[in-house]
């Protein structure tokens, strides 16, 4: 694998994470538990889709095969999406959406902090922009974890069940293969293994304040980075791609 191929694959992985989670959050539009949260979740969705756009643009340039950011976002088949399984999981109740976001935001915060020092100027610029937005997301999801976990018995039990359910996808956030190895060696991306402990400390501190616990069971699911997804992604893509598939090249 060349450096260029590795860079393309990495950008695609991160762009897909942002696009798919951004799309999931957009499903809350008009369905939020309160107006403020309807607006908050869709604001975060917009940030994520904005970040995905920047990453796809760069990926398209790196690939240099005449594809645009829109081609990459809308015109691939399911197996070609490389997002982690966590982001494609169903919204569930509001608490489950917050737990999914909580794990993701804490990971993104550490990752993008590392990417700010990338030797690749374009990645460093995207990261410097993105980190400012991620800080707001992180504060939002973390505050809600505490409010729901340390709230009523009902909210505690529900959010605890979601922590148990979604913690199976944490390991995959730290997935590494040849792609990452090449880019770490080149100083383009940080080695995420180095901040695994910081990640765990950060989330455990907040979970403890929220009277929540990570499950003892350590069984983990993986596959997204290789294009092997849970059943939920296909339905999401059907909706995401519908317009472009039905009316190819459509614009407004």
């Amino acid at each position: 694998m060349t450096k260029q191929e590795a860079l393309f694959e990495f950008l695609l992985r991160k762009a897909d994470d942002s696009l798919i989670l951004g799309h999931r959050l957009s499903e809350w539009c008009g369905h939020g538990p309160i107006l403020e949260e309807d607006i908050a979740l869709t604001n975060i969705s917009l940030d994520l889709i904005g970040q995905a756009t920047e990453l796809y643009k760069y990926a398209a340039e790196v690939e240099d095969k005449g594809r645009t950011e829109d081609d990459l976002a809308f015109l691939r088949i399911e197996r070609e999406y490389k997002n982690v399984l966590l982001v494609e999981q169903l919204n569930g109740d509001f608490g489950k959406t917050i737990v999914r976001q909580f794990f993701f935001d804490h990971f993104e915060h550490l990752l993008y902090e590392g990417l700010m020092n990338s030797k690749d100027e374009r990645i460093s610029a995207i990261a410097t922009k993105t980190i400012k937005e991620v800080k707001y997301h992180l504060r939002h999801s973390s505050e809600w974890i505490i409010r729901l976990g340390d709230g009523t018995e009902e909210s505690h039990d529900r959010v605890q069940a979601s922590v148990k359910d979604l913690s199976r996808f944490i390991n995959e956030l730290f997935y590494q293969d040849e792609v990452e190895e090449i880019l770490i060696k080149e100083g383009i991306i940080p080695d995420v293994k180095e901040f695994r402990v910081a990640f765990e400390n950060n989330i455990e501190k907040i979970l403890e304040e929220a009277t929540l616990k990570l499950p003892e069971e350590k069984w983990q699911l993986t596959g997204g980075r290789k294009g092997v997804h849970s059943e939920h992604l296909g339905y999401l893509l059907a909706e995401l791609q519908y317009m472009q598939r039905t009316y190819p090249g459509m614009e407004w």
């Binding site: 403020e36 949260e37 607006i39 604001n43 975060i44 940030d47 707001y136 504060r139 939002h140």
Partner: peptide, 13 residues
């Protein structure tokens, strides 16, 4: 503070 996320991305409520 009502919400960190307001009517546009750049505003809080």
């Amino acid at each position: 503070l009502i919400s960190q996320f307001g009517s546009t991305a750049c505003k809080a409520h």
